[in-house]
């Protein structure tokens, strides 16, 4: 592992020193798991993603932040094959992924969750979990007819699912339909389900949105735990407090571009980031779009709050 660890009292162990050279947007990493080049995606006249170069460090927790509409989800969709870029290429563990369909990306070990939770409503929570397991013999139509060929594997998968569900405090819900879960529980289920495949890289799109604060702490611990188990985490999050708490590295997107990156503390005091959240026109009339401005001001407040508390 290229990253040194700096234990801090009472807070998670952060990976540091992952980059090479001066920290600028697109800085090379010592051990990148994803390397993307010239990835662009336009919707009509709107350029949603325009990433010149970015590298995601391996076995670290990277946060992707940015204002609403910055292109974070679109970038996730591109990296996971759910959307096709106009230009660009990227590699995952040295393997080029451009043009690879989404299900194959997942099989390679790059598993994602969705911002708008996709619980499989009319499947039980346990079936949701089992669906996440890779390499199931019984998923072949003909083998499915011969249960003795897959029953043992099914039991192993079930045991693993129950273990994960217990960790996410969903084990009592195992036999319920996923539709009966609350919004926050669905987020948890989706994350647990993604982990059923033993991924190398977990990509979480706003995993904390709608999860109550009591559970947030345990979810944070899960995410930190993933790193301990050797996984890499890339997550989108608006809660700066949380980003600061667990992220080893932060990448900031605005209007499709990577505008800043670096360790959390450094990034949050970066003027480019404040710019990104206020919009590049913040020197102009504030009355233009009151809602947007209010949101931006709140984001800034959060940034500053987070600064104060550390």
């Amino acid at each position: 592992m290229s990253s040194d660890v700096k234990p801090t009292k009472g807070s998670p162990v952060k990976s540091v020193d992952m980059h090479v050279g001066e920290i600028v947007p697109g800085v090379p990493k010592k051990d990148p798991i994803i390397v993307a080049d010239h990835v662009t995606r336009t919707f009509g006249g709107l350029t949603a993603v325009d990433v010149d170069h970015v590298e995601i460090p391996r076995n670290a927790i990277t946060a992707l932040i940015g204002p609403n509409g910055a292109g974070k989800t679109t970038f996730f969709n591109l990296l996971t094959g759910f959307d096709k870029p106009d230009t660009g290429k990227w590699t995952f563990m040295g393997k080029s992924l451009a043009g690879i369909p989404s299900f194959r990306v997942a099989r390679l070990g790059q598993v994602r969750t969705f911002q708008l939770t996709k619980a499989l409503s009319l499947l039980t929570v346990l079936d949701n979990m089992k669906l996440g397991a890779k390499g199931q013999k019984g998923e072949n139509m003909f083998v499915a007819l011969l249960p003795w060929l897959w029953r043992k594997q099914e039991e192993e998968i079930e045991a693993k699912a129950m273990e994960l569900l217990a960790r996410f405090k969903l084990d009592t819900k195992a036999e319920d339909y996923a539709a009966s879960l609350s919004g926050g529980q669905r987020k948890l289920l989706e994350m647990a389900r993604a982990l059923m495949s033993d991924p190398t890289l977990v990509m979480l799109d706003e995993p904390m949105a709608g999860v109550n604060p009591a559970l947030t702490q345990s979810l944070l611990d899960h995410i930190l735990d993933l790193k301990t188990q050797g996984m890499t985490v890339l997550f989108v999050e608006h809660d700066m407090q949380m980003v600061r708490h667990i992220a080893d590295w932060v990448i900031v997107m605005a209007e499709g571009k990577i505008v800043a990156e670096g360790p959390p503390d450094a990034v949050m005091s970066n003027p480019a980031v404040i710019d990104a959240y206020l919009g590049s026109h913040h020197d102009q009339d504030l009355g233009e779009d009151p809602d947007q401005e209010k949101e931006n001001v709140n984001a800034i407040k959060e940034l500053l709050d987070a600064d104060d508390k550390s």
């Binding site: 299900f103 598993v111 969705f114 996709k118 619980a119 499989l120 495949s197």
Partner: peptide, 16 residues
Amino acid sequence: KGIREDEDAVRALGKN
């Protein structure tokens, strides 16, 4: 059945 519920979710889990 997962496909019936949400095919993108099933895709994200590596199923064709």
